[in-house]
Amino acid sequence: MTEYKLVVVGAGGVGKSALTIQLIQNHFVDEYDPTIEDSYRKQVVIDGETCLLDILDTAGQEEYSAMRDQYMRTGEGFLCVFAINNTKSFEDIHHYREQIKRVKDSEDVPMVLVGNKCDLPSRTVDTKQAQDLARSYGIPFIETSAKTRQGVDDAFYTLVREIRKHKEKMSKDGKKKKKKSKTKCVIM
């Protein structure tokens, strides 16, 4: 069974824990209790493949930012979460993405942009803004509501699919490099 290491990042209060708990335990946590770091595991079937999701729910508070490099190193894919009623959390996505790329030393890291709290009427981040940002990053965008469960499975499952595509691409690139290195030079 394939294991996928997913990391949920975003500013404090955007609903990272609520999304994760909704996926794992099928219930909505409405009281806000700032996370330092929590880890969850769940076995699911995605596109006919049974897999184990190892999900790291991270601290959004700035005082825990020193811990970010460590979990970013171990993560295979990242859910970059903002709240649709919090423009600052949307603007912060850029910083999370840049930090992930720096730590992973790669421009090509599996990510999904997630606009959470889409059940709320007080939207300050337009869907088109988020779609445009995701398009500019070359990553999928999904709106979710941890409260109603809308888009929750889709967000995590899409990230797994992005990781699969990335692994497939990397193995193809690896095979191309191996083929090239088999060419021999004969000096007579």
Rank of each mutant, 00 (worst) to 15 (best):
K16F: 00
Q22V: 01
K42S: 09
E3T: 11
C185H: 15
Q43N: 09
G12D: 10
Y64N: 14
A134T: 03
A18K: 09
T2A: 10
A18D: 14
D105G: 15
S171F: 14
Q43P: 09
R73C: 09
H95M: 03
N116E: 02
T35A: 08
V14L: 06
N26G: 08
T20Y: 05
K176L: 11
P34W: 03
D47G: 07
V45L: 08
I142L: 11
K175V: 08
D119A: 01
Q70N: 10
I21D: 15
V7F: 08
V114L: 08
N26C: 03
T74I: 10
Y157Q: 15
S106P: 04
V9L: 14
T35S: 13
D173W: 02
E76T: 13
Y32W: 07
K175Q: 05
K172R: 12
Q129F: 03
K178Q: 11
P121Q: 12
Y71S: 11
Q129C: 05
V8I: 09
E143K: 12
V29M: 12
A18Y: 01
L52D: 13
A11W: 03
V14R: 01
V152H: 05
D105M: 03
M188Y: 07
K180N: 14
N85Y: 13
I84W: 12
A130H: 06
D38V: 06
K167D: 09
T183Y: 01
I24M: 13
V9D: 04
A130C: 10
N86W: 02
S106D: 08
K128C: 12
L79P: 02
H27M: 06
Y4D: 11
H166E: 05
R164A: 04
T20F: 08
D54E: 13
K88G: 12
M67Y: 06
E162I: 03
Y64C: 12
Q131S: 09
R135H: 10
R149N: 09
V186K: 08
K179G: 15
C80H: 02
Y71K: 10
D154S: 11
A83S: 11
R102T: 05
K177R: 09
L19V: 09
A155V: 10
T144Y: 02
G15C: 00
I36C: 12
I163F: 03
D30W: 06
V8H: 00
E162C: 08
N116V: 15
T87E: 15
Y32R: 10
K169D: 11
K172S: 10
Y32F: 11
T183G: 15
K128E: 13
M72H: 07
V7D: 00
K172W: 07
F90H: 07
K128H: 13
L56H: 14
K184W: 00
A66N: 06
Y4M: 03
C118E: 10
R68M: 13
S65G: 13
G48H: 06
K165L: 04
D105W: 07
T183W: 02
N116Q: 14
K175P: 15
L79E: 00
P121G: 14
T144M: 14
E37F: 08
R123S: 14
Y71H: 09
D132H: 06
T50D: 08
K117T: 06
